[in-house]
């Protein structure tokens, strides 16, 4: 278990982004629009947080066209999944759960 919370995940919006992506089956992607609703972030804010997580290698962003409309989707990487699990274990350690 880590001794400090991962500063990249330990931020309310990024925590919600990671939690939402973690709830999906491993290979599934979540659309930017739905991620915005689920995280409660504004569009610009969400973009900035997604970039931070992508640069850290925690999420992978895919851009394509769907029904002639641009679509941005994201999914957790293996490293992101592991980092999130470590973060949850850290929190559980603090409240005395193992």
């Amino acid at each position: 278990m880590t001794e400090q919370p991962d500063p990249l995940i330990h931020q309310p919006i990024r925590l919600k982004i990671m939690s939402a992506l973690k709830a999906l089956p491993e290979r599934d992607l979540l659309e930017f629009v739905r991620l915005k609703t689920l995280s409660g972030a504004t569009e610009g804010n969400l973009g900035a947080h997604i970039s931070s997580l992508e640069q850290a290698g925690y999420i992978e962003v895919q851009k394509d066209f769907h029904h002639n409309r641009p679509r941005t989707r994201a999914k957790l990487t293996r490293a992101g999944r592991r980092a999130f699990e470590d973060y949850v274990a850290f929190l559980r350690g603090i409240i005395g759960e193992t």
């Binding site: 925590l15 709830a23 929190l91």
Partner: peptide
């Protein structure tokens, strides 16, 4: 917060 977001997403 994590549990709430995971449940909402699912």
């Amino acid at each position: 917060d994590i549990e709430k977001t995971e449940n909402r997403t699912a």
